[in-house]
Design a protein around this nucleic acid. Structure first.
Lengths: 343, 343
DNA sequence: ACGCGCTTGGAGAGCGTTTTCCCATCGTGT
DNA sequence: ACACGATGGGAAAACGCTCTCCAAGCGCGT
């Protein structure tokens, strides 16, 4: 079986005994077509096995039916076996799942676009051209110029996670401060006296917000100062931080950890140190990733509704595509506390 | 800023004072162009900010510069919050990472295609048309007709994981039997007397191979029969299976678990049962996923080089695209044993 | 009968490329 | 000088589709 020429509109038209234009109308569901011809056309389509050529269509409509998922790799360039750290992080998969849940029923394609430190202009060029109708942008380094470029090129785009500097571009984000406050309230409720925290890297905005949210809420509960240790969101750094904290503050009885993976590490260290959880020490994580469930005891954590956020981002992008003059908007999601067994 | 018309070849040609054809030649690096004009054209390109329109180009070249990553969702239709189980499984991310590592340097796009039980013909149609030049197909249910359809439509495609029935289509796969044998050898080496195993679902071929490989190798070591319990690759099922095994065979001193996630569960149960690892019971997992590292003690496991396999799949697909008459091939990867602290 | 609006369907002009011809132009061997 | 093969560049034909005209047909009011 050779890769012979596929049937075109022309072929269908010939078979149905009508013109290209009519077939096109029928295919695209435009009314004003005699039911009789309508019928003829469809049978001709079936008979020829016609499938519209997407590129030809896109060329004239200026619509690709594709949105790009842009991920930055400027942070993970050449140490790891290529990006494996990022892609194998459940974060990525959760976003893809969320996007797909709204894109797929509508027949919209998702194309992966990676952009390095250099490729910004190329990306914008590609986007303005035929690559995609719009973009969902993920996980940018703190002061990435991309949001600005997108905004000024007038490319439909939605960020997941707000940009570091204010930029006229739509985004979805999580109320990280509120989430941290939830954790703080829980800790207070459990009657903790000597809370400590393990924070994330200071260059990621979400991390900063979690710290400040937690501090502020704890202050309301009468804890003016919270000893903290800085991790980098890996389990390893969680262990290290916990050990340091334990050494400096042996009497600690509560710890807020800025993400679940680090919390997993902290739990291990606490366990090895002979602390009973939650009796001696209560622990609250952040994200409600799959790690939270596999922790022992199962981790009490702040749920980050990433799938929902991604789905909303997709919806926002789509509606922007339908109405190019739509205003820039943002949606902030409220986290919730998932009570399991560590606090 | 309006979405004004972008510069086209025509515009560049006018600025450079040459014809469209010449600009096209220069852009596509076709020799036989006067260096002088060559220069003129490039400055004109810079000046106008020209970016070739991908769709117009694809329309005539019949090449999209895109490959599709096809994932089946017929198994996970409507129970979970949409596919979250599959996408958030590190499996997905590892494959994406591996594919990207070869695709991106070549400027090839990756498009996600999900296909349900019904959508097969649609997918094939889309693929034969403008969607993508070829496909990497992932994680199919046992007797999926897709490989057959792809083969008979002569669509360039590479499967990750061999098809259940023999089909003339290229694939990469892991020597699951060999991997399981590796685990068996290790268990034997550790002098185990009463080995048991936790297998995966019988409908996935890889799972079956792991079981048979393990059984065969253990037989060589003199263990004619291995008690087994069947899980479904989740941590939960690992726990359940381990509990059952412990109840039925209290004297067990070694367990082979068909994937890391289940091994994680098994480890927890063994720990709760007061068994010391690896002194009382040795455990070997399979996959070397991130779970293996976060297990305590760190899990000894069989490494499944998924990124490498995905990368190879991409390379195979690409070379098939370059030479449409290339023969169907397959590459089987050899797993290795990663020695950590459980065996 | 005639004209007028309304519905249908066809002809054809693009959309932005690549690529096939084909015509200059030039250098070379006789 | 003249013919002749290279070689560089332009005109224009696709590629497969959408969509804007226009013409034809039809029912209605005058």
């Amino acid at each position: 079986m050779q890769s012979q020429r596929l049937p075109t509109l022309e072929d269908v038209a010939r078979v149905a005994g009508v013109s290209r234009a009519t077939v096109s109308r029928v295919i695209n569901g435009i009314r004003n077509v005699d039911p009789q011809l309508h019928e003829q056309v469809w049978t001709a389509v079936d008979q020829t096995g016609y499938v519209p050529n997407k590129m030809a269509r896109s060329l004239v409509t200026r619509r690709t039916g594709t949105v790009a998922l842009v991920v930055s790799d400027s942070e993970t360039h050449d140490d790891d076996p290529f990006m494996s750290r990022f892609f194998s992080d459940p974060y990525f998969g959760r976003v893809v799942g969320g996007l797909m849940s709204v894109l797929r029923p509508l027949g919209v394609q998702l194309a992966l676009q990676m952009v390095g430190a250099d490729g910004h202009k190329r990306l914008v060029g590609d986007l303005r051209n035929g690559q995609a109708d719009g973009a969902v942008v993920l996980s940018l380094p703190a002061h990435d110029p991309l949001p600005g470029l997108l905004a000024e090129s007038n490319i439909p785009a939605v960020l997941i996670g707000r940009p570091a500097e204010p930029v006229p571009i739509s985004y979805v984000d999580l109320d990280n401060e509120g989430g941290a406050a939830l954790a703080a309230d829980r800790l207070a409720e459990r009657g903790c006296r000597r809370p400590v925290m393990i924070s994330g890297p200071p260059e990621v905005p979400a991390s900063v917000d979690r710290v400040s949210g937690f501090r502020r809420a704890m202050a309301r509960h009468g804890h003016a100062w919270i000893p903290a240790e800085t991790g980098n969101f890996t389990q390893d750094s969680g262990e290290r931080s916990m050990r340091a904290l334990l050494a400096a503050h042996p009497a600690l009885d509560a710890v807020f950890v800025a993400n679940d993976l680090m919390a997993l590490g902290a739990l291990l260290v606490l366990h090895d140190a002979g602390r009973r959880i939650p009796d001696d020490v209560v622990v609250v994580g952040f994200d409600d990733s799959s790690a939270a469930l596999s922790a022992r005891p199962a981790l009490t954590t702040v749920r980050h509704p990433l799938e929902d956020m991604a789905a909303e981002a997709a919806r926002m992008l789509l509606s922007r595509l339908d109405d190019p003059d739509a205003r820039v908007t943002s949606v902030i999601f409220e986290p919730t506390l998932v009570e399991r067994h560590t606090a």
